[in-house]
Design a protein around this nucleic acid. Structure first.
Lengths: 138, 138
DNA sequence: TTATTAATTTATAATAATTATAAATTGATA
DNA sequence: TATCAATTTATAATTATTATAAATTAATAA
């Protein structure tokens, strides 16, 4: 990971390492604000702008991916490989969701449109909220 | 269309009729701002808030659909039936794009997640911008 | 080890789409 | 035609994100 940053010609700053470290293996798909709030106690000088800058740089370098499943805010996934996501409309959590093989392979041409990438997002209710609803309605 | 509004218990206002009329058969997928600017000359008292309110009401009634393909702003489509869209990263225009049959049928359950709806968005370069790029690079 | 410098961080302001508010207006009904 | 709830309107508030510019710092070379 450190090697990757260097390879990209990026400076190794404590802020970047902290953000990378927080995201490593993280399956919660946090927003920039959430990342900021979680790191702030440990890095009191941390600025929200730095979080945005770092996420932007890392996303452009292909080290993570931005998830635009929520109209209100972006979420971030340390796994840059294309895969599908699910947004719960009750608790607003974002989950990985394997919907089986998806045959779309970008880039390709369709009706004269050059398709470079695509997003497939699922919306509904997550298992936790389904359970909670079930308990309530008893 | 007028019948539909009445059926929904919605008042028949000139603003609503104007917005519906503008969208009818419109394949440009305008944003709220664009709808507002187009109608303002003819309806000088029109407020942007009214455009948002009306679009919200009509979308909730299933008379049109919101397209969240662009991170910056929503677009609106008079066709409420599920179909796929394309966003050009050069001119930012939104187009209908038939990507062949999509087998996903909401609602259904996958891994304990209740999937109620999904979106499939394509990103790339539209035919017009491809042509323009081609001319430039000659 | 230290000086240099370009990259980065930081605090803060700006932006822009959307939503909330509350007063004024109006469509639908009796 | 009067009534009233629904709607419109102007405007302020909200909120995520981006821009700005000064201060700081990581990396490099002397």
């Amino acid at each position: 990971m450190i090697k990757k940053l260097k390879k990209l010609g990026l400076k190794l700053t404590p802020q970047r390492l902290a953000i990378l470290n927080l995201l490593e293996g993280n399956t919660k798909h946090p927003s920039a604000e959430e990342i900021y709030k979680q790191l702030k106690p440990q890095y009191p000088s941390l600025s929200l702008a730095t979080v945005y800058n770092t996420l932007e740089v890392l996303a452009r370098a292909g080290e993570l991916q931005e998830i635009r499943i929520n109209a209100d805010k972006r979420h971030f996934d340390p796994n840059p490989a294309p895969h599908t996501h699910f947004l719960c409309r009750i608790c607003e959590s974002v989950h990985d969701l394997d919907a089986g093989p998806i045959e779309i392979q970008a880039p390709y041409n369709i009706n004269g449109y050059l398709v470079e990438e695509f997003t497939l997002y699922f919306y509904g209710i997550c298992p936790g909220c389904l359970e909670r609803e079930r308990s309530k309605n008893q």
